[in-house]
Design a protein around this nucleic acid. Structure first.
Length: 461
RNA sequence: GCCGGGGUCGCCUAGCCUGGUAGGGCGCCGGCCUGCUAAGCCGGUGGGGGUUCACCCCGCGCGGGUUCAAAUCCCGCCCCCGGCGCCA
C-alpha cells in the first residue's frame, strides 16, 4: 500500500483532514473515505470467504467420478453462487463509491506551502531584475514588494507604457483578435510577421536551453484518451479546461505535461533510470471556462498557445530537489530574456488538486503595474503516478514504489510575448527584442533582428 | 475503413483446437555453497485482504456473456503485426 494518500488515510486521517482544511475544502470527506474503506475491506473479506468455498466445491466437482456425487456438488456450487452474487453486488457498489472518493482527493499539501485561499496569500520568495515602474504605479509597486520585506531596485519612468493588447493590435498592428473572434470566437487570435517570428524564436530558445541541460526533447500526442486525462488532472480541471473531439474518446491536451506524464503509464521504471528528464513542445488548448471576463483583451489568456514544458520522473526522495532544479531552469530562461520577475510560493488554497507544492514565476507587467503569471512549477509527488500506475522498482529487496512526477513551464509563447511587449517598448512604441533570441532569428532574412517597429506613432495624452 | 494473424505474472515463451488450481526460460531479489569471480543448488518474483509470512481472493489486453468451472468457448472494444484501400 505505497500510495501516500491511502497510507495517510489509514494511518493518520487527522493529517489528511488538516491538508484538506488548508486547501479550503471540507475535511468531512476524510471520515467518509475512512468509513468506505473500512466497509470495503469488510466486504472483501466476506466475499473472499464465499469465493473460497465455491472454489473448493468446484475443485471437488473436477475430481468427482460418481455421477450422483457430481450432481450433488453442482447443486451445492449453484447455491453458493446465489449467496455470493448478492454480496458481490454490494461490494461492487462500495468499491465504486470508495474508488470515486479516493480519486477525488487532492494531493497532500507540503509543509512548506503557505496558508491562504487567494492569490494575495501567495508568498514571494525572490525578486529578480530592475522593473520599470511608471510613476503612477509606484505606490502599488511598493505594496507588492515591501509588504514581504523585499527592497526591489527599480527604474521609475514618467511615461505610461502601452498595455500588451494595445501594443499588439494598435501600435504594432501585428495581431487581430477581432477578426479571430469572428472566425473562431473570443480568446483566439491572428498573429502576423514579427510576432510570429518572435513566437518561434522563443520556443527554439527554450528547446535549445533545455536540451543543453540534458533534457530529452519530445513531441507528444496533442490528443489523449479520457483515461489518461483522469490520470493527470482532476474532474474540475477537466470540465473547465479540456476540449473534446466529437464522437471520439479523444481530448485536446491543455499542456504537454499530460502526454508526457502518460509516456510511462503502466510501466515499472528501474530506479537506476531515474530521474528521467524530458522537455516537450506542443500547442496547448484550453477552454478557460471558469475565467469569466478576466483578461478578455489581447493574448494573455487564450484558447491556444505554444509551450515548451519541462517534465521529470523522479525517485520520491529526490523530488523536492528536482522541484528546485526546475524552478532554477525557468528562472534562468527569464533572466536570459531580461524580463523582471518574482517567484511566489503558491498558497494551499490556490494549488489545484494535483500539486503538493507549486511555484509561479510572475513577470512584471509595466503597463498593468502588476506581476502576472508566466510559468508554473509543480511537484505532483505520487498523485499522477498512482493513477497512471507508474512505479519504480528498487533492486534492493525488489520494492515497488510510485515515482514522483514534476512539471514546469519553460516558455509559454503568448504570455511571454505579452511580457516582452510591455517590458521592452520604448516611449515611441519600438520593442527591443531580447538579445538571446537573436541567434534564432538571424538565419531568416525576413525575421526581425533587434527591434519590432510600430506601425503608427504612439499617441499619449 | 476492409481482410487475415496476434496480445499470457519485468522480458521471452508453453497452454487455447479438446474448459478443470498458469508451466518453462531469461532477468532480478534473498539464501546456501565456494580462496575471489563465475558456475551450481534452494526459495521468491503482479494486485488486494488478513490474526503479516499460516492463509485466502483476484489476475492471461479491456468489458460483457455461456458454465458448477473460462487463458481456453461466444459477443463488443482497444492495441500490435501483415496485406488491401484511402491520404498530407
Amino acid at each position: 500500500m505505497p500510495w501516500s494518500i491511502l497510507k495517510l488515510l489509514r494511518e493518520n486521517p487527522e493529517e489528511l483532514k488538516k491538508s484538506l482544511k488548508r486547501r479550503g475544502m471540507d475535511p468531512g470527506v476524510v471520515d467518509e473515505a475512512v468509513r468506505l474503506d473500512n466497509e470495503w475491506r469488510r466486504l472483501v473479506r466476506l466475499v473472499d470467504e464465499i469465493r473460497h468455498r465455491h472454489n473448493q466445491v468446484t475443485r471437488m466437482i473436477a475430481k468427482a467420478r460418481d455421477p450422483e456425487e457430481r450432481r450433488r456438488l453442482i447443486e451445492e456450487a449453484k447455491r453458493i453462487i446465489r449467496e455470493r452474487e448478492e454480496l458481490e453486488k454490494k461490494l461492487q457498489e462500495i468499491a465504486r463509491e470508495r474508488e470515486k472518493l479516493l480519486l477525488s482527493l487532492p494531493n497532500i499539501v507540503h509543509e512548506s506551502v503557505p496558508d491562504g485561499q487567494t492569490e494575495d496569500d501567495n508568498v514571494p520568495i525572490k525578486f529578480w531584475g530592475v522593473p520599470r515602474v511608471w510613476r503612477g504605479h509606484l505606490e502599488e509597486f511598493r505594496r507588492q514588494t515591501e509588504r514581504w520585506g523585499f527592497k526591489v531596485p527599480h527604474e521609475v519612468i514618467d511615461w505610461k507604457p502601452v498595455g500588451h493588447a494595445d501594443m499588439l493590435e494598435k501600435v504594432l498592428a501585428l495581431g487581430d483578435t477581432y477578426k479571430a473572434a469572428q472566425v473562431a470566437g473570443s480568446r483566439f487570435y491572428y498573429l502576423f510577421d514579427d510576432i510570429v517570428w518572435l513566437d518561434a524564436a522563443l520556443l527554439l530558445y527554450a528547446i535549445d536551453f533545455m536540451t543543453r541541460k540534458g533534457y530529452r526533447l519530445v513531441l507528444p500526442p496533442y490528443m489523449v484518451r479520457y483515461k489518461v486525462l483522469m490520470g493527470v488532472i482532476d474532474i474540475e480541471t477537466f470540465k473547465d479546461a479540456i476540449y473534446s473531439i466529437k464522437d471520439e474518446d479523444l481530448y485536446l491536451i491543455a499542456t504537454a505535461e499530460h502526454p508526457l506524464a502518460a509516456l510511462y503509464m503502466e510501466t515499472d521504471i528501474p530506479e537506476e533510470e531515474l530521474p528521467i528528464k524530458l522537455v516537450g513542445v506542443s500547442p496547448c488548448f484550453r477552454r478557460e471556462a471558469g475565467a469569466g471576463n478576466r483578461d478578455l483583451k489581447g493574448i494573455f489568456r487564450v484558447h491556444q498557445f505554444h509551450k515548451v514544458e519541462q517534465f521529470i520522473y523522479s525517485k520520491p526522495e529526490e523530488s523536492w530537489d528536482m522541484l528546485e532544479e526546475l524552478r532554477e531552469n525557468t528562472e534562468e530562461l527569464f533572466r536570459g530574456l531580461g524580463i523582471p520577475y518574482r517567484v511566489v510560493n503558491v498558497c494551499a488554497g490556490e494549488l489545484g488538486h494535483v500539486a503538493a507544492k507549486k511555484y509561479d514565476l510572475e513577470a512584471w507587467m509595466p503597463a498593468q503595474g502588476r506581476y502576472r503569471e508566466m510559468a508554473s512549477i509543480s511537484n505532483c509527488t505520487d498523485w499522477q503516478s498512482y493513477r497512471l500506475r507508474i512505479r519504480l522498482v528498487r533492486r534492493k529487496g525488489m520494492v515497488r514504489d510510485y515515482v514522483h512526477t514534476l512539471n514546469a513551464t519553460a516558455i509559454a509563447s503568448t504570455r511571454t510575448i505579452t511580457a516582452i511587449l510591455e517590458n521592452f517598448q520604448d516611449e515611441d512604441g519600438v520593442v527591443t527584442i531580447p538579445k538571446v533570441l537573436r541567434r534564432y532569428l538571424e538565419i531568416f532574412p525576413r525575421a526581425p533582428k533587434d527591434y519590432i517597429y510600430p506601425a503608427r506613432r504612439v499617441k499619449r495624452e
